[in-house]
Structure formats: C-alpha cells, structure tokens
Design a protein around this nucleic acid. Structure first.
Lengths: 67, 67
DNA sequence: CCGATATGTAAAGTGCGCTTTACATTTGTA
DNA sequence: TACAAATGTAAAGCGCACTTTACATATCGG
C-alpha cells in the first residue's frame, strides 16, 4: 500500500505541520504515513480523503495482484 | 461509522464462517465488524470492498456532520 | 553567516484490530 | 422434539496506529 499524501499536500502548498493541524493529528502521524512507516486507520484514511476532496481509493493505492 | 457487511453477505447467501474463509480472517473478525465492536483496518476494508465489488465508501458508511 | 522553518529520527506509552480457543444461545428443519 | 448449523459472548495475547517529547538535520531568506 502506498499513498499520495505528500504529493497532495505539496500541491496545496501545505507543510506537514499545517496538514497535521488541519487533520487534528500529530506531525509524527503525517511523517509516518508519508514515509510508509505504517498505514492509516480507516477513519483517518476517510478524514484525509475528505480533506483533499477525493475518495479513499484515490488517496491510498492498493497495488493488486495483476495476474 | 457503520457498515453494510451483514447486508451484503446475506444478499450473497453466505454465512459468517464462509465469508471469513473467503476473506482469510477469522469468524470473530466478521462478527465484530458486523456488530460494530470495532472498525476494520484500511487493508481489510479494502479487501472486503473488493470482495463485494464495491468501493470502501460504499461498504463503510461514515456519517458526516451534515451541518 | 545566522536564525527560522521544514523535515526527519528515536523511543516509550496507550488502545484497538485481529487471532485463538472455548463455550453459549438461537434458528431451522427432519 | 431433537439435532445441526448459524450466530453470539468471553477473555487473553500480539502487533500496529497514533501520541508525546526530545533532539537532529536540511534548507533558505536576510
């Protein structure tokens, strides 16, 4: 699983700290998600998707077995 | 957060045990999700949505502040 | 060069998602 | 009514999602 959080955040001209504030999570959470340390919870994934006006599937990329 | 897992499962004529097998989780996990004991992880939510050929947002209902 | 802003790492603590095992209750049907 | 299948409850254990605090490194404008 990868995600487009860093890309979407930069496109909005936001720092990690600003995004963290807007999402009501810590900066550590944003860093960890952007750097792939762990996956978001379903609720946080939803909150992030709504913030960027996208669906969860548009922000979080679930690479499928393409076989 | 609520979800339509029980409804979708019954529409497919599956028991909880059968669905659990197909999703490669335990029956307890299905029971807990259907009865709202806790939320699915993002990965499991994705797996469930794919199983039913729906998006995460179609299976898991995030009631928004509609104000 | 210097200070501010942004990004990163480290590490410990808490609660939840999921498992495992075991047993109880409900429901359908012969 | 009796048995089987389906659903539910209980409880302990593990790892991950997220927090908190502190410090390190990089980048950049004045």
């Amino acid at each position: 699983m990868t995600n487009r959080i860093a890309q979407l955040r930069k496109a909005r001209g936001l720092s990690q700290a600003e995004l963290a504030d807007r999402l009501e999570v810590t900066r550590q959470t944003i860093i960890s998600l952007e750097n792939g340390r762990y996956n978001a919870s379903l609720l946080l994934a939803h909150k992030i998707a709504r913030f960027f006006d996208l669906t969860i599937e548009e922000v979080f990329l679930f690479e499928e077995d393409t076989r």
